[in-house]
Design a protein around this nucleic acid. Sequence first.
DNA 1: CACTAGATTTTCT
DNA 2: GAAAATCTAGTGG
Length: 188
Amino acid sequence: MKTLDRSFYSRDSAEVARALLGKILEKEGMKGRIVETEAYYGKEDPASHASSGKTDRNELMFGKAGRIYVYLCYGLHYLLNITTRSKGKPGAVLIRALEPLEGLNRMKSNRSTKRRYKLTDGPGRLTEALGIDKGGNGADVTSGDSEIKVFKDGLEGGEVGKSGRIGINHGQERQLRFFLKDSKFLSR
DNA sequence: CACTAGATTTTCT
DNA sequence: GAAAATCTAGTGG
C-alpha cells in the first residue's frame, strides 16, 4: 500500500477534506477508515486558528502541506489535523471520525472509559484511541517512516454528505464538513 | 434517555 | 479574565 504524496495535500482544503473520505489512516498498526472531515483556512476563515495570524501553536498550518498538526483543545483533548495548501497559505483538514478496522483491542485499552463502546467517532476520541498526542506534531504523513500514514487505496463507495462545521461558534455556516452518509461511525 | 457541569491550555481582549 | 475545532460522568425523568 502506498501513501499519498504531497501534491494530494497541496490543494484547496475543501478538496482535500472531500478526497480523504474513505482513505485508510494507520498509526503503529492500528488502522481506521476516514469517514468524517472538516476543512479550515487562514485569515479569511474566522473559525480557524490561523485566522488571526501565526502563533507558536498554529505555525504548522502556515508551512508545507501533508504534515500532522495536533492541537490541545479545551485543555484536555488532542485534535488531529493534516496541513493543506502551500507555504504562506495556511490551511488544514480536521479528522473528525474513523471507522476502526485493525488493532481494536489496542484502541480500547488506550481509551480510559470502559463503559462506552464509542472508540473513534469524534475528534477527541480518535486521538485518544490511537494514542496521538503533541509528540506527533509536525510529522510528515507523506514520508514512509512517519508514525502516522494515510494510504492511497481507500475503500471507495458511499455517498458523500456536506454540512456546516461542528463545535464552532464563530458564525460561518459554509459547508465545510464532509462525511460518508452511510457510515455508522460519525460523530453526533 | 436528556441535560448539565467541569476539566484545563492557548490565545486574545 | 474569558472563550475555544470536546468529552465524560453525574443527575433526574
